[in-house]
Every structure is written in structure tokens, then in C-alpha cells.
Amino acid sequence: MAVSFIFLNSKAMKAYFCLLAGWLVPGLGHILQKKIWRGAVFFVSILALTAIGLSMGGRVYPFQTENPLTILAFFADLGNLVVYALARTLAFGQGSLERVTFEFGTAYIAGAGLLNYLIAIDAYDIAKGKKR
């Protein structure tokens, strides 16, 4: 196992750590396991999707119950945890409804979050030894 942290002595703990790292920063779970190239591609792809989505005026949805469908968007956006936290604290990603690119921008941001869930789970599977 490439991840060699003193406090992570069991395989299961390492796998959970890679899952969490991958969720926090796209591709970090792979980079920690010496899958540098793959992790870098994941990082660039997710970052590009998010940056394009934000520049198109897409919205990072907060948790709100007034419109139940936006709860799904919230969970999708939460996949990109750092971007979600930054968007909430620095107040960007509010969405520009008047722009024609608003819908596509929102889809880009939600897509990036959903893909990052898959990437983090992939890092978990690699650490568990289920995948190469």
C-alpha cells in the first residue's frame, strides 16, 4: 500500500481516508496512492467543469426545502466539497438567472459534484484492493 501514514495502520482506515481525501480535493485520493497521472486528470477535469460552470453563471444550491427538487441539486453540489464550502463562505456561485448560460452552468457544477463522488469511491476501491 502506497499510503503510509502512521495513524492509518489498517487497510479499511486507509480506504476511508482516501475516500475522504478524494471527496475534499478531486483526485487527491488517487494521488495519495501514487496514481499521480490519474489523480491529476481527475483534478483538472473537475476543476475545469466547476470553473466553466461558475463562469457561465451557474448556481451552487444551498439546502432549502421550499423547492424540493433543489435538494437533489444540493446533494450533487456537495460532491465537490471544497467548492461548496467556499461558495457558501465567500458567497460566489449565487447563479445569474438572467443569463442564457445559467442552466448549463448549473448542470456543469452539479455534474462535477456527481463525478467527484464516483472519483472518491474509485479511490476507496483502489485502497481496498478491489481495483488497480
Binding site: 481527475f42 477535469s45 453563471g57 442564457v100 448560460t101 448549463f104 456543469y108 463525478l115
Partner: peptide
């Protein structure tokens, strides 16, 4: 404002999704 064209937006989106999913789903 970038990507005024929906076709271009869709193509770029499809590109990134394909890259990520192909790396996750296939080994060689």
C-alpha cells in the same frame, strides 16, 4: 460570458464526463 452556444457547452461537458468515466470504468 462564455459558451453562448449550447452545442459547444454540451460537447465540452461530454468530453470531460467521458474522460473521467473512462478512467474510472476501464483498466487498460
Amino acid at each position: 460570458m462564455i459558451f453562448q452556444s449550447h452545442l459547444l457547452s454540451m460537447t465540452v461537458y461530454a468530453f470531460f464526463v467521458s474522460v473521467v468515466l473512462s478512467l474510472i470504468r476501464r483498466e487498460d
